[in-house]
Design a protein around this nucleic acid. Structure first.
Length: 472
RNA sequence: GGCGGGGUAGCCAAGUGGUAAGGUCGCGGUCUGCAAAACCGCUAUUCGCGGGUUCGAUUCCCGCCCCCGCCUCCA
């Protein structure tokens, strides 16, 4: 198995920290809960979901942590504007995040630590103290504490930045008079009026932690000084992950992360989807257009994580059609597998799933999902052909279903089969059957139209008419 | 300016030093009362552009163009 490591900019063979235990520690940067996360954010979480699920398919036990940033400039501003306490303000977006993640079938991390948790604030303060005692941090005249990047020679290695070349984009105000170096970043931000009642005591001044230190504190607290994989969007490479390395390694003296994996952006009209640009959709926005969570999951999953993905409604339709193809295939296989199960003894434990290399091997190669799906669809076409020719027996159908079960632990794309046909539709279908028996084609077609308007599809097969839900 | 990612058919998208997976759309066919689904066939002599290496390059090297992102709190 190999992954593209941002640190080396190379594909590297994956070797866990602890190969004997087959367990892997993953830290993933989670949402800042100042508004509902958009689907660009979720692209990153789906990529991380794919990573976790594939590692698990390959027999690793994954311990994954995803932090939730519930205190920063934006959350404080939002709470002020809403005139509610910070915790109350962020609670709604935490809930929304878990709701959306569930809609997208994203597997829950083992822990979701929050930055405001006193346990972690204490740890952040301890780490900052350690950095000060090592002269890697200093308190400036504004009472805030900053990391001294010139004392950490590896600073800039992850982003491959030459610090002397850093240019300000003017996006962020610099307190240049207080800091020794323009690139020094805040570890502890001294309280000011804007912060209202958001503050914690510290040895330096009342205030709040900087953004970066929370991840260092929570990652090392929950996963230890060294972790296997750390993920996030490419926009986190600098400064966030760079800062995390400096802080964590500054305190522990150990290599913080073995593999850095970063996900490319979701684009809209060829531009990065971002709150600041206003060109974003949320999960409910997509659901409101009558697409389902799994359709969105497929649309966000199907492109390799390091390639920018342009979000379009046309793409959503392609996702819908592709999933429909999978659904049809599974339905046919199940029917064949079921049919003979009545006559045959249940499959024995010695029966092995069909040998279908390709899918998992593709994912081994830096999560090459496009190639993996290619194998899936090739398999679908081949077996559909066999079924058309009546050449697929129940044992083979079962074996294929077993194979699907296995790869679906990674994809999680099966329609949740609560297929309940509404009585209205059943009634119309019955009437249509009667019309067809009388060869009243006009009436039959009319009824088909009405069923179609209810989002159901009628198919006339040798075994009679069948009803299929149109999408979802 | 520095550092990255990308540029393959109408659209989405794999891929390899030997002559281009897959999805979607469109067209034709088989099946069907007609459809749908499924299957079959067609749809890139060509992989941003120009050089070079090679018997042979989309794949390696050099130069260039275009798009997107990061450059101090955005996944």
């Amino acid at each position: 198995m190999r992954f593209f490591n941002t640190y080396s900019r190379k594909l590297e063979e994956f070797e866990p920290l602890d190969p004997a235990a087959r367990s892997i520690k993953i830290y993933t940067c989670g949402p800042t809960v100042y508004s509902r996360a958009h689907i660009g954010n979720f692209r990153a979480y789906i990529f991380e979901d794919l990573l976790q699920r594939h590692l698990e398919l390959r027999g690793y036990k994954v311990h994954r942590v995803m932090n939730i940033t519930d205190v920063d400039d934006k959350t404080i501003r939002g709470a002020r504007e809403a005139r509610v306490p910070l915790a109350k303000f962020t609670r709604q977006f935490k809930q929304a995040f878990f709701e959306d993640a569930k809609t997208l079938r994203i597997k829950r991390a083992d822990e979701f630590p929050c930055a405001t948790d006193q346990r972690y604030v204490d740890r952040m303060i301890a780490m900052i103290g350690a950095l000060i005692s090592k002269r890697l941090a200093y308190q400036a005249d504004d009472k805030s504490v900053y990391f001294r990047i010139n004392k950490f020679p590896n600073y800039g290695k992850l982003a491959h930045f030459d610090l002397t070349q850093l240019q300000s984009t003017g996006r962020v105000k610099h307190d240049e008079y207080d800091k020794e170096h323009i690139g020094d970043f805040a570890l502890w931000k001294a309280w000011d009026e804007e912060d209202g009642d958001v503050k914690w005591d510290s040895p330096w001044a009342p205030g709040r932690p900087g953004w970066h230190i929370e991840c260092s504190a929570m990652a090392t607290a929950l996963l230890g000084d060294q972790i296997d994989i750390h993920c996030g969007g490419v926009d986190n490479i600098f400064p966030h992950h760079e800062a995390e390395i400096a802080q964590s390694e500054g305190v522990t003296g150990e290599k913080f992360v073995r593999y850095w994996l970063h996900c490319a952006h979701l684009l809209v009209d060829g531009q990065k989807m971002a709150k600041s640009l206003g060109n974003f959709y949320t999960v409910p926005d997509v659901l409101a257009k009558s697409y389902s969570g799994r359709e969105l999951r497929y649309a966000l999953l199907r492109v390799h994580y390091r390639v920018p993905l342009n979000f379009t409604w046309k793409g959503m339709n392609e996702a819908r059609e592709s999933l429909g193809r999978i659904d049809e295939w599974l339905a046919r296989l199940s029917k064949i597998a079921r049919k003979e199960k009545v006559q045959r003894p249940a499959p024995t434990a010695t029966q092995r799933p069909i040998e279908k290399p390709g899918f998992e091997e593709a994912l081994d190669d830096d999560l090459n999902i496009s190639a993996a799906l290619g194998f899936l669809f090739e398999t679908i076409r081949e077996t559909n052909r066999a079924m058309d020719e009546n050449k697929l027996d129940a044992a083979s159908a079962s074996a294929l279903l077993d194979w699907w079960q296995r790869i679906n632990t990674v994809l999680d794309l099966e329609a949740h089969a609560e297929i309940v046909v509404p009585t209205e539709v059943t009634q119309l279908a019955k009437e249509r059957e009667n019309a067809r028996r009388e060869k009243n084609w006009k009436r039959s077609d009319e009824l088909r139209e009405r069923i179609s308007a209810l989002r159901w599809e009628v198919r006339d097969t040798k075994d009679g008419s069948q009803l299929t839900p149109r999408s979802g």
